[in-house]
Design a binder for these strands. Structure first.
Lengths: 144, 144
DNA sequence: CTTGCATCTGACGCATGGGTCAGGGTTTAC
DNA sequence: GTAAACCCTGACCCATGCGTCAGATGCAAG
């Protein structure tokens, strides 16, 4: 599978795959002797995971730090590629901790923002002719 | 009050104030006849609100759209400056609705991410020699 | 063999929220 | 009166996550 198909299958673009590779999110893929990248379905799966993590708010650098442990997620079965060292494990663990803190903080902030927006919205509805309003959707759908 | 003091009082920099002004978050301030900007305490209050909203994740453009309604928040008492029209009210209301949706979505995503991180962290702790771990911080501190 | 799409590398572009000069006037303090 | 500190505008710089072009090959089809 060459880069175009791989990218399409993963729901992204060739450019993104090269970018991920360059930034260490993806192992350097097997090349044909003429230099064309070839990807396996495992590679594609990994790309999907990467996209998921990005969409969740992790940065490229975060994911690069994690790249040797991505197999902990879903069906990703790619071998570790950059470093086999256990030395970075505590570091990764630290990163998780810090990330968790940041995420918790974000959630807190967003919850406050939500409240604020909803107050503004309500006040606006009072002073303005009611156009088309949705009844206050109460609290965030923490259904996840 | 000139720009330096105003910025310092609001906890930011002169550059930021000029930037907010340029992007329509702040009304063009009164100038001395030599062209220096002067700010009132109301202006400063508004800057604080702007910073709060930014820190909550609103973009500059969002806040610009809201700028005529910022007085709904806190003690902001600046007059509306760009448009007195009521025409944009429904639009602003729409914006609030959409923003609320986006925020809710973010909260949902972040909550998922949080869970994911916490799983990874736990698995890492299993396979790795326990260096220095914090006991799983459970759920986001929704203390706000 | 030739056409035409896919791929290669390298480099510059975009939006965000400002930081940081550069080159020149203003205000304040001694 | 003169230096220090502040302010002015305009312009370029940073990191992120790619998009987009340019010029050169590669590959599959007729």
């Amino acid at each position: 599978m060459r880069i175009g198909d791989a990218a399409a299958t993963a729901g992204t673009t060739p450019r993104a795959l090269r970018f991920y590779e360059q930034r260490g999110l993806l192992p350097p893929p097997v090349r044909t002797r003429t230099g064309q990248r070839t990807y396996s379905t495992a590679d594609v799966a990994r790309v999907k995971i990467i996209r998921e993590l990005l969409s969740l708010g992790l940065t490229v650098d975060d994911i690069a730090t994690l790249s040797d442990h991505l197999h902990l997620l879903d069906g990703d079965t790619l071998p570790e590629h950059t470093v086999p060292d256990r030395i970075r494990l505590p570091q990764a663990s630290e990163m998780f901790r810090r990330r968790l803190e940041v995420v918790d903080e974000h959630i807190t902030r967003l919850t406050r923002l939500r409240q604020l927006l909803s107050v503004c919205h309500a006040q606006l509805a009072e002073t303005a002719p009611p156009a088309n309003e949705s009844p206050d959707p109460a609290r965030p759908t923490t259904t996840a």
